[in-house]
Structures are given as structure tokens and as C-alpha cells.
Amino acid sequence: MIRACLALCLWAVALAAPAADTPFEFAQPEQAARYQRLAEELRCLVCQNQSLADSHADLAQDLRNEVYRMITAGQSDREIIDFLVARYGEFVLYRPPVSPLTWLLWFGPALLLAIAGGVWWRIARRRPEVPPPDSGEDAAVAALTGKSPESP
């Protein structure tokens, strides 16, 4: 058990090893913009809360190189994304496609909102209305104050 734990720790350290980033140069500004957009939409597998653009992990650098290579080779965004999804799964996408597997992810919040709305509606409906003021009481008040019950 301790060995397994140690192994996991060592592995985590190996994953976290930083790498020097190399800035890329593009022939056209349009390519640079595409690169930037893709790098921000793709998730780093090692530091899972970072995009490829943010991450300093070695693997993120490799994947950035790959995205750069494919852009300069004239491949489309679709082809680049398919290339990475084929190897790493839809996990690399920060905006996963809508599929039966991701229905809960996409529609879960709306579902929760609908449930909360339903519960709220039921509670609101069940609560008894405030009873109308008793007219007998009004008459007693009128008799005591000497004012007619109609006047406010």
C-alpha cells in the first residue's frame, strides 16, 4: 500500500516537471489566431484544470508543437481536433460535443433548475392563503372608533 502510494507520488512529480516554452512564429496572423484559439480550447491532460495554452507541462508543450505543426501544414481546425480526440478522447475538449455520454453534463444544470422550480412551486401552492379580514371584527373596530368600516 505504501509502495503504491509512493509510486503515485513519484509519478505525480514526474508529471509536474516543467518545460521551457518556445513561442511559435506563423506566416499569417490568421494562423496565429487559430493556434491561440485551439490552445485555449484544448485541455492539458496532466494539469487538468489548465488549457494547453496555460500549461507548462512537458506533454502540453508536445501537444502545442503538434497543433503548430498541423496548422502550418494547412490542416483544418476540425482535423486537428479529430487528431487529438482520436488519441486522448473527448477529455481534451473543454467544450465536449453533445452526445448521450455528455447529456448529463450539458443538460444537468437545466434539469436541476427545473426540479428546484417544481419544488418551489409545490411549496408555494400548498401554503394556505392569508384569510380575508373578518367583517365582524371590522364592525367592532368601527363601533369603537366611530368610523365607518368602508373608509380606510
Binding site: A7, W11, L45
Partner: peptide, 28 residues
């Protein structure tokens, strides 16, 4: 490594006799 979707070394794959990947262990 990239073509195999490696993201954390060591990784271990089991290939059947046709070369189909049947299992993958990430980490030791």
C-alpha cells in the same frame, strides 16, 4: 507515445495477437 495517447509515464498496454489495444494502465 503521442500516437498511443501517452500522458503519464509509465504506461502499459496489452496488445492482442492482431495488434489491437485491449488494456491500458496509466502510471506504474
Amino acid at each position: 507515445g503521442l500516437d498511443l495517447g501517452v500522458y503519464g509515464v509509465p504506461e502499459t498496454f496489452v496488445l492482442d495477437r492482431r495488434g489491437v489495444i485491449r488494456f491500458k494502465q496509466v502510471g506504474p
